[in-house]
Simulated scan of single mutants.
Amino acid sequence: MGDENKILTVQNLTVDYTTFRGNVHAVRGVSFEVNRGETLALVGESGCGKSASVKPIIGEDASNQVIKGGKIIYRWQHQGKLEEIDLLKITAKEMQRKIKGRQIAMVFQDPMTSLDPTMRIGKQIGEAVASAHSKLSKKKIDERVRNLIATVGINRVETVAKQYPHQLSGGMRQRIVIAIALAGDPQLLICDEPTTALDVTIQARILDIIKKIQKERHLSVIFITHNLGVVATIADKVNVMYAGKVIEKGTIEDIFFEPKHPYTWGLLESVPDVDAPQEALPMIAGTIPDMTQRIIGDAFAPRNEYALDIDFVKEPPMFEVSKTHQAATWLLDKRAPTVQMPRSLQKRINRMQGENNGK
């Protein structure tokens, strides 16, 4: 049946979106794994395919979405046995009845798209609990609602339960959305930019809540963000995405201390550094390619100051840096010239490593 520690395996997922301009090749053969109890972060600029890679996991498909190929294998324990299913091969009804909310839940960027503005908070959470646990009594449901509100760090449980979404702040609404996501006791939680619209202080609180819940429930988490600063506080593993592909993957230490792809260098350099003199943040020049067109070679080549001739001709394979670390860049080919990361980034990494070692 496969590795019991792996709760999710995505293999060569390919997703298009039909538009009036032609097919957008949003996901171009993405593969990744999520282990039980760990957080995998998917990182990259807007439009790189992060959300499009995870929405098929939970059956969140747009009318113009076309899944061209791949597998999404989900594994869970059922009556002492390890069950395994390809989520791309089940019906929408099966997804709704067996998987969505019960095994896998999702938290979106804008909580108002997930909340009913005409319904009190307690009733919305109660409906989610009743849907996942149909045999519970009204008393037990109410008890679970109160526990869920408290679980996401809200003290005024009874007051908040009686309020409507518009009466809560953005941070409070996002906590309620997390509570609803937890109502069915899922094993895998997908968080799609859940803190982007919040200020930095509230953002940190939401991240702390997610980490606390994950530890208490031994949840697996897929965390989608464009912000590597957020990733540093929450992830165990990181997949860096560009133009519908994973272009670097590794542990949090691999990506932050030993980044190998020039795109990853650019993302790391664009994170504000509170310990360095305030200067203009470096930006990655150019924009992502037109995803309706066939990409020849390395999709990042036109924006890559370190690009080699081969980058414009042939797509690089994933080169193994270590057992936990891989990157798709021709710079790792043994025939390539030696190229060092930007000095400013190396200085920052050296300082981070010193702090990490307690120096």
Rank of each mutant, 00 (worst) to 15 (best):
L308H: 15
I296E: 12
K237H: 15
H261Y: 12
L345P: 07
K260I: 05
T287K: 12
N350D: 15
L345M: 14
R351A: 14
F312P: 04
V230M: 12
M241K: 10
T324E: 14
G250F: 00
V240E: 01
K347P: 06
V246Q: 14
F256W: 11
P272Q: 07
G229I: 12
A299R: 02
E320R: 12
R343A: 13
V231H: 00
I310P: 04
Q346N: 13
A336I: 13
G286Q: 13
L281K: 09
A285T: 14
I284M: 08
V339K: 09
K334S: 13
A285N: 11
I284G: 10
A243M: 02
S322C: 11
P317E: 09
P337H: 04
G244D: 06
Q326P: 02
I247M: 11
A301G: 08
V313C: 02
P289G: 11
R348F: 01
T225C: 07
K314G: 09
D290M: 09
I288F: 01
R343S: 13
G297S: 12
T233F: 01
D298R: 10
T264A: 11
M283E: 14
L228W: 00
T338I: 14
N350F: 04
N304Y: 00
R294F: 01
E279K: 09
V339P: 03
K245N: 14
G266M: 06
I252C: 01
Q340C: 04
Y306S: 07
I296F: 11
V238G: 00
F300L: 06
A301E: 05
A328Y: 03
K245F: 02
K334P: 07
F319E: 09
A276L: 02
I295P: 02
A328N: 06
A327R: 01
R348K: 15
M352N: 05
D290L: 07
F312I: 09
Q278T: 08
K314C: 03
G250Y: 01
K314M: 12
D309Q: 15
L331T: 10
N304K: 12
G244M: 06
E320V: 15
V238L: 08
P277Y: 15
E315P: 03
E279V: 10
A235R: 05
V240C: 09
A276I: 03
V231W: 03
R351N: 09
E248I: 08
M318E: 08
M291V: 07
M241I: 10
I255L: 08
K334V: 10
T225Y: 03
T329D: 13
Q340S: 12
Q326V: 03
W265Y: 15
I349W: 06
Y263A: 08
V238D: 02
P337T: 04
M241Q: 06
I349P: 01
A299G: 10
S270C: 10
E258P: 04
M283P: 00
E253P: 01
F256N: 01
V321L: 06
L281S: 09
D254Q: 05
V271P: 05
I295W: 06
V313K: 14
M283A: 08
T233Q: 08
P259E: 13
I349Y: 00
G244L: 11
A327K: 02
T338Q: 14
V246T: 11
Q346H: 08
T264E: 04
I310A: 07
V240L: 11
I349Q: 11
P282C: 05
I252W: 13
T233V: 07
H261F: 15
M283K: 15
K237G: 06
R348G: 07
P317A: 07
A327W: 02
V339D: 02
T324A: 13
N227P: 02
